[in-house]
């Protein structure tokens, strides 16, 4: 089908500068004696060149009337959805940050605040005391708790000086005494 001898002279069949550029490009790609394209008989219909017909057919088709509106609506919808996600994500991040900050603050506060003995400490003290004093474990636990409360009260009174009340002015003998194993080692009074 292709006949190189029919390669058109661009000065004859392609007068436009665009045609010149095209043939220059084809020459660059294929060379002068190349297997150039078969354009020799491209005048096909009433003397109209094929490329012109195709070029005109490009303007024959138009986009739909709703395409622009559809794209704009879709863009708007997507923007709204992105904003919602940004808000959700922002809220989640904020709540996580607040929770983390509260945890950190709480931990640091627990580090600096004085802490009393835990229940396991009291239990172990009670066990030791029960073994040492030869009393029942429950009673030893009671004594340990009493001792702990007493020491806590002492620490508290050191930290905040208590106001002078009638109760504090009472003589030592009038204060209610707490029976402990130190006063009654055998526990016979109980």
């Amino acid at each position: 089908m292709f006949d190189p001898s029919q390669w058109p002279d661009k000065s004859e069949s392609h007068e436009s500068s665009q045609g010149d550029a095209f043939f220059d490009e084809m020459k660059e790609l294929y060379g002068d004696d190349s297997h150039g394209p078969h354009f020799a008989d491209e005048t096909i219909h009433n003397g109209v060149e094929l490329e012109e017909l195709i070029r005109g057919a490009g303007r024959y088709v138009r986009p739909g009337d709703q395409l622009r509106a559809r794209i704009l609506e879709r863009v708007s919808h997507r923007r709204e959805r992105r904003r919602i996600w940004q808000r959700v994500l922002g809220g989640f991040t904020l709540s996580c940050t607040i929770a983390l900050a509260l945890i950190i603050i709480g931990r640091s506060a627990m580090t600096f605040m004085p802490r009393g003995p835990s229940s396991s400490d009291l239990h172990s003290q009670a066990t030791r005391r029960a073994n040492a004093d030869g009393v029942a474990w429950e009673w030893a636990l009671t004594e340990v708790v009493y001792d702990w409360r007493r020491s806590a009260a002492t620490n508290l009174s050191r930290a905040t000086p208590a106001p002078q009340t009638s109760a504090t002015n009472q003589p030592e003998s009038d204060r209610p005494s707490v029976p402990t194993s130190r006063t009654h080692r055998d526990g016979s009074l109980r």
């Binding site: 790609l29 294929y30 150039g36 394209p37 078969h38 008989d41 491209e42 096909i44 094929l50 017909l53």
Partner: peptide, 19 residues
């Protein structure tokens, strides 16, 4: 370029017949 060449050749044949 070769794809263009073959496409134009095919279009030429088809349109010559149809038009």
């Amino acid at each position: 370029a070769s794809r263009y060449r073959y496409a134009i050749a095919k279009l030429n044949c088809q349109l010559r017949e149809n038009l």
